[in-house]
Every structure is written in C-alpha cells, then in structure tokens.
C-alpha cells in the first residue's frame, strides 16, 4: 500500500488548489506512474492529466513526480515512491488548467520563436541533399527532443522570464538547426539569440540535464550557442578594429 497525494484543481469548482490523498494497493509487479494514475482514474474519473503513447515518445505526460519533473509513463513507481509516498503535481512554472494539466502556450511560443524548421536558400536537388554520416551525427542528442517541457519547467530562469528566456527545450532545437549542415541561416539564427535574455539567462544550473527523460543535454547545446555567439562577437570586433586601423 502506498500513499499517493495528487494536486487537484478544477477552476469551475475550486477556489484554491489542494492535495488529495489516495491509498493505492500496488499490484504484485512494479508499474509505471501512469498506470497508477489510470487505475486511480477508474475509481475517480475526475482526475485530469494528459497521456498518449504510454512509452515515452510523445511527451504528453510530463509532471512533477515527488518533486522532480519526469514522464509518468516511463517512471516506475518503485524508483520514486521512497518511504511508500508518492506526490504528483503539475509541471511547475506554467499556469495550471486543471489538476495535472498545464497551459503550455508560452512553452510552444518559445519553440516557434526559434524558427524550428530547416532553412536552406539553395534550390533543392532532384533527390535528397547529401549529408555525411559524421555531419548527421551532429544532430544526435538534439533531434530526439519530444517537447515534454520537463526541462524548461524545471529551470528557474524560465520560471522568471518565460516570455523572454527561450528556455532549454527551444534552445536545444535552435542548436539542432544551427548544427545541421543543410541549414544555411546560422548567422541569422545566432543573431536572433544575441540579446541579453534569449540565451544568456541560462546560468548553467543544469536542472534541464538532470530531468530530461530522453537523456538529452540542453546545457551543452546552450554552451555551443554561447561560444558561437562569442566567436562571432570577437570576429566582429576584429573587423571593426582592423577597419578602424585602416582609416586613421
């Protein structure tokens, strides 16, 4: 028997959110947190959460599980229910729609802001564009993102400036297109991130890395973007310096 506490809030009936306690009889095998929720929902159909693939690839069921963001469908209860207690809350930092469902508008807006699509100014050939295996390898660890928002909603910088700091998930995707040898807009992409907020609000807290259910490393991608921005700046500075030298 484990004690499960679930964050409940229905804007139509509840003035304030509250934690509801359930006693859950574990079956004789280990189960995922999602299966536990599905079972509880059979007795209380009002519990609301998102779910789809139930195998960790669609990114629907990100939530805070005993204080750490993760996907309910690939988190075994045995791994998290220490002391036979389990606490489920919505992803932090985004407005709650109901129970474990958050409003992801701001998260998606940041994703759209980085222009998450390949841009190539040359006309495409009659077959595929060629890319060497080693160039394709550069996309590993980037393209696998499932947009579950576990990383961005665990990031204090994102909590503070969700409208201005792009956040780890969208920055990982920004770098996915910068790193793609088929994309020709690297300069433009870097330029759009060069303000004080978009990327520089990342202070390397690394929560994104420790929660990513796909084992990705947004912090590393952000580091790459920052160093490319710095190289660009130095390059610009050198040009300005040499121009200045020539005209005097």
């Amino acid at each position: 028997m484990i004690e499960v506490n679930i964050y409940r809030y229905n804007p139509e009936t509840d003035k304030f959110p509250y934690m509801q306690k359930f006693n859950f009889e574990m079956p004789d095998r280990d189960i995922m947190v999602l299966e536990l929720l599905n079972t509880l929902k059979e007795s209380d159909p009002t519990i609301s959460y998102r779910r789809s693939c139930r195998e960790g690839v669609c990114g629907s069921d990100g939530m805070s599980i005993n204080g750490k963001n993760g996907l309910a469908c690939i988190t075994p209860v045995s791994e998290v229910a220490k002391g036979n207690k389990l606490e489920l809350r919505p992803l932090p930092g985004l407005p709650v729609v109901r129970d474990l469902v958050v409003d992801m508008t701001e998260f998606y807006a940041q994703y759209e802001k980085i222009k998450p699509f390949l841009q190539n100014d040359t006309p495409p050939p009659n077959q595929e564009r060629l890319q060497s295996p080693s160039d394709r390898d550069k996309l590993d660890g980037l393209y696998e993102c499932i947009l579950c928002a576990c990383c961005s909603t665990s990031c204090p910088s994102f909590w503070w400036n969700p409208d201005k700091f792009v956040g780890p998930a969208a920055l990982l995707q920004a770098y996915r297109f910068i790193a793609d040898t088929r994309d020709t807009r690297t300069e433009e992409r870097l330029e759009s991130l060069s303000d004080p907020f978009s990327v520089y609000r990342c202070h390397g807290i690394m929560n994104c890395v420790s929660v990513c259910p796909k084992g990705l490393n947004p912090n590393k991608a952000i580091g790459e973007i920052k160093s490319m921005l710095l190289t660009n700046k130095r390059h610009e500075a050198e040009i300005i310096a040499s121009d200045g030298g020539g005209s005097s």
Binding site: F117, L118, E128, L130, S132, R136, F177, D180, R182
Partner: peptide
C-alpha cells in the same frame, strides 16, 4: 525527398 528537404534527419550511408 520532399521530407528530406523539409529537414527530416535521415540516417546516412557513407556516400551521404
């Protein structure tokens, strides 16, 4: 080929 042009990250052979 359209999907590839749209950016789908296909795995590659040595010849690209």
């Amino acid at each position: 080929f359209e999907l590839e042009h749209m950016g789908l990250p296909f795995s590659r052979f040595e010849n690209g």
